[in-house]
């Protein structure tokens, strides 16, 4: 049987290979989306009957899965899927301030209307108008209720440019938290390697601080990658963390430029593997550019890290312009 989607008055028969999201959009529904790859959860909807498929529920918490929430961009139903109208529940939040902390990177601080329970390094979805985007949390609940995000300002980005220009007091919606990029207790002496590019530093900084707050005793290494040395930020904070114990190593890696103290020049994956050639028994966190994250994930695994010990958040963005929709069957009578 071919897939069929019903939502309110909408009734769409899916084309072969079409996702539920594509079908909904083709039928004229307004469903937000960004990555269209199951990574950001911007498109999440709730199925009230029918099976969206297990791939479409990957990465969702057991509670959400049980209630029928799923990611339409990853769903290719083979039967009828009835979808609830209306978006997932969200809370409100107010922008506290926006500050430029690096080249094309702003720190956004947010005050949620209700306290958010999360683990440092997880991500949330921000909702602004029709746009929903995932951002990782650089803060920790231990620092108070205020949330901190690091947002790279994309030259044509709709959400990131809005955030960069937002005035204190501006309102956004907030959902989450989600994701498994966070420190877990139980192996305090396990060596940790955290590698990120650009704003991928946000969750990694949060994880390092969390690990130390929770009494981690093993070595911690943080590698931050950028195109050139002007791309690094939070340098003083991270350097000062390195001073405290000697157990924390902070390395910057630029693709081009002059090497200097603490700055390596070269390909991020190659430099990381040169500095950390054997990763057996290590816990790995990777965040930022999808290409870098995927390459590192594979190489860290080949160098001995267990698959379950590697947590990765690829910061997938929307493909612009969006891929064209298929042409469905001609509407009846048309």
């Amino acid at each position: 049987m071919t897939g069929r989607i019903r939502r309110g008055s909408l009734d769409v028969v899916l084309e072969p290979g079409e996702t539920a999201l594509e079908g909904l959009l083709r039928g004229g529904a307004e469903v937000p989306s960004s990555c269209r790859a199951g990574a950001c959860q911007a498109c999440m909807l709730r199925a009230v009957s029918g099976d969206p498929g297990s791939v479409a529920q990957q990465g969702l918490s057991p509670a959400l899965r049980e209630q029928g929430w799923f990611l339409p961009c990853m769903s290719r139903p083979t039967g009828e899927l009835v979808i609830e109208e209306g978006p997932p529940p969200a809370i409100g939040a107010a922008i506290v301030d926006v500050a430029e902390i690096g080249r094309a990177i702003v720190r956004v601080r947010l005050e949620p209307d209700e306290e958010l329970s999360y683990r440092p390094g997880q991500y949330v979805q921000l909702i602004q108008g029709e746009h929903v985007r995932a951002y990782s949390l650089a803060s920790s609940p231990a620092d108070g209720r205020t949330l901190e995000l690091h947002v790279r300002v994309h030259s044509l980005g709709r959400m990131s440019r809005w955030l960069a220009a937002a005035a204190p007091g501006a309102r956004v919606g907030l959902r989450g938290p989600a994701g498994s990029c966070f420190y877990t207790e139980g192996r305090p002496d396990q060596p940790l390697l955290l590698v990120g590019t650009g704003a991928g530093l946000a969750p990694l900084r949060a994880i390092v601080r969390d690990a130390r707050r929770r009494g981690h005793t093993g070595p911690i290494a943080l590698v931050h990658g950028a195109c050139d040395p002007t791309g690094f930020y939070l340098v003083d904070e991270l350097k000062s963390m390195a001073d405290e114990t000697g157990n924390f190593r902070y390395v910057r890696c630029a693709m081009s430029g002059e090497p200097s103290d603490g700055v390596e020049i070269g390909d991020l994956t190659a430099v990381t593997l040169r500095l950390f050639p054997c990763l057996k028994g290590w816990r790995i966190f990777l965040c930022g550019s999808p290409d870098r994250v995927n390459a590192l994930k594979k190489q860290c695994f080949l160098r001995g890290a267990g698959l379950k010990d590697i947590s990765a958040d690829a910061f997938l963005t929307a493909r612009m312009p969006p891929p064209p929709l298929r042409r469905g069957p001609a509407p009846p009578g048309g």
Partner: peptide, 14 residues
Amino acid sequence: IDAAVDIFYRKVMA
């Protein structure tokens, strides 16, 4: 089996 998968998959990928 989880441990075996890691070893096996690593061999295949290499």
